[in-house]
């Protein structure tokens, strides 16, 4: 029974850790599928995390915080779009600039506004997204296996986790079954064809990066007002890049990306539980090995040693309309 509880709590942490990662990876999905490099996920998430925590600390409302996070991250997206779509600048350089600006600006503003050395004040329960117990969680608990699974792993998360869960099939549907999805995928593969069909390439790409900002804002708000209780300097700590790795591992498709996020989150949850514990038969597993695993996997995959990940064809290349 102890073993079951241990596994359930492991899966519960996995879901908690996977949600922000998946929201950011999905943000990358919309951006990259439209042909705009999404290396700016890290900075947009960080900006969102700060805006959410700062707004929630002042207003006491988690929802207003979420709104501010979405606005801040979308503003960052517009900047990325302005540089890389309108001015056809180098998208990687633009993304690096955005990440750097977000890293510096959030620390400067947090320190100036709250004077806590780069953090925001600890948020009260009302200013955070609390846990929601799904209906019948306690009633079903006595059922063998499924009862505890439902009560412990599926129920008891904050609303953003469920939003992320809904967004997975929804995004798959948008990408593969809707007109917008078809155009989105086309503009990332062959923008000239989209242009020939009379659809504006820049407009479509701006829509995509704005959706990307919207989702990054939610991911950032998750970190500071759902998972944590306030903003800390550089609190994303590479999660944006990890999300990008998940997107690559998922081969730029929503549902496999979700699976990759769950895998990374599982490794993360396992890693915290394995610290200093000797695994029977193996000995103590170095935590750094598990930490490096997602990155090593991504490198191997991109190099074609494990499967093959082919990015959208037009990703990173600005579209120049021929005269």
């Amino acid at each position: 029974m102890d073993g079951l509880i241990w596994i359930l709590s492991l899966l519960d942490s996995m879901v908690r850790l996977a949600a922000p990662l998946f929201l950011a990876a999905l943000a990358g999905f919309y951006s990259e599928r439209a042909g705009v490099i999404a290396l700016d996920l890290e900075g947009k998430m960080l900006a969102g995390a700060f805006a959410a925590a700062a707004t929630a600390a002042v207003t006491g409302s988690a929802w207003l915080g979420l709104g501010a996070a979405v606005i801040a991250a979308m503003a960052m997206s517009l900047l990325h779009g302005f540089a890389s779509i309108t001015h056809r600048g180098d998208q990687v350089v633009s993304a690096v600039a955005i990440n750097t600006i977000a890293l510096g600006l959030t620390a400067v503003l947090a320190n100036a506004w709250f004077g806590l050395g780069g953090r925001t004040p600890n948020l009260e329960a009302g200013a955070r997204f609390g846990e929601i117990t799904l209906p019948l969680a306690e009633t079903l608990r006595p059922l063998p296996l499924l009862g505890p699974l439902y009560a412990e792993v599926i129920s008891g998360h904050n609303i953003l986790v469920y939003i992320a869960a809904v967004l997975a099939p929804l995004s798959a549907w948008i990408a593969y079954r809707s007109r917008f999805g078809l155009r989105l995928r086309a503009v990332g593969e062959n923008p000239a064809a989209v242009d020939t069909a009379g659809i504006s390439v820049p407009a479509l790409r701006y829509q995509a990066v704005l959706i990307s900002g919207f989702l990054c804002g939610i991911a950032g708000a998750y970190l500071s007002t759902a998972q944590g209780a306030g903003f800390q300097q550089n609190m994303t700590a590479g999660k944006g890049y990890l999300a990008l790795a998940a997107l690559i591992l998922g081969k730029w498709r929503p549902l496999p990306t979700l699976a990759a996020c769950l895998l990374f989150a599982f490794a993360d949850a396992l890693q915290t539980r394995l610290q200093g514990v000797a695994v029977p038969g193996i000995g103590e597993v170095p935590v750094q090995l598990i930490e490096a695993l997602p990155y090593v996997l991504t490198v191997l995959l991109l190099a074609g040693f494990v499967g093959r990940a082919v990015p959208p064809k037009a990703v990173g290349t600005p579209y120049v309309k021929d005269r």
Partner: peptide
Amino acid sequence: YQSISPELVVVIQGVVILFAGALEHM
């Protein structure tokens, strides 16, 4: 200046990357 944190330099760095790199064409 207690209220200005040294991370202001990071902002300047980011803005330089933006203007000298990404918005070069502007």
